[in-house]
Design a protein around this nucleic acid. Sequence first.
DNA 1: ATGACTCCCAGTGGGAGA
Length: 258
Amino acid sequence: MQIATWNVNSLSVRLPQLLDWLAANPVDAIVLQETKLTDDKFPVADIEAAGYQAQWFGQKTYNGVALLSRTGAADPVRNIPGFADEQARVIAGTVQGVRVIGGYFPNGQAPGSDKFAYKMGWLDALRAWVSQELAAHPKLVLLGDFNIAPEDRDVYDPVAWAGQIHCTDEERAHFRALVGLGLHDAFRLFEQPAKSWSWWDYRNLAFRKNQGLRIDHVLVSEALRERVSACTIDKTPRRNERPSDHAPVVVTLAMPHA
DNA sequence: ATGACTCCCAGTGGGAGA
């Protein structure tokens, strides 16, 4: 079983690339971030034609998430229950017995800003809810655009980024607290090339110079840890014309009855 | 290097992203 995450930075712009990628990478499920579409504009027909069922939750201009799966998702949830939020950032569902939680974590803009405070409150609420979800669903994957670079090795220039957004102590403490619920950073369960990033700035030839951050993550529960056989970042779509600034991340699980 | 690019809604520019 394979599950992916991809921040597409506008699904209307990236739909052809998504369909191409799914044809080449027929994952069982994928969560999308930054669809930037109101629900009435979601391209459900194209996605179903590609062999996926979809749950989606969006808004105009900003945010927006979706969960696509071959077999459909049971018990869907949109956003964090009990956390009043104007922004469409979370979609969850149970796919082939695995609880899949896709998130587009707040950017936070800058430490000290209102948006940073929102990010901290959102992370508090997310952790409390994921803790409950874990208790109900031991086989759980939390994945998406976390907008957090967990360690200095996840940053191309950790000196320049020290204390900057995505790299603050507060954000990194939140990442560790999520892991502390009993989750594992699937990417780090394996030997990985140095300088592995999931996002590269559009500016300054950052992709060509491989100047990026690893901010898109897949966290797997303890019950799934032994089943994880691979976790990779696919840089291929970042080489497209008009690419998203993020690359997909794919986790492979050995699921005997999937 | 106070930047750079891309998307969006707007409306002939500006905010947000990361």
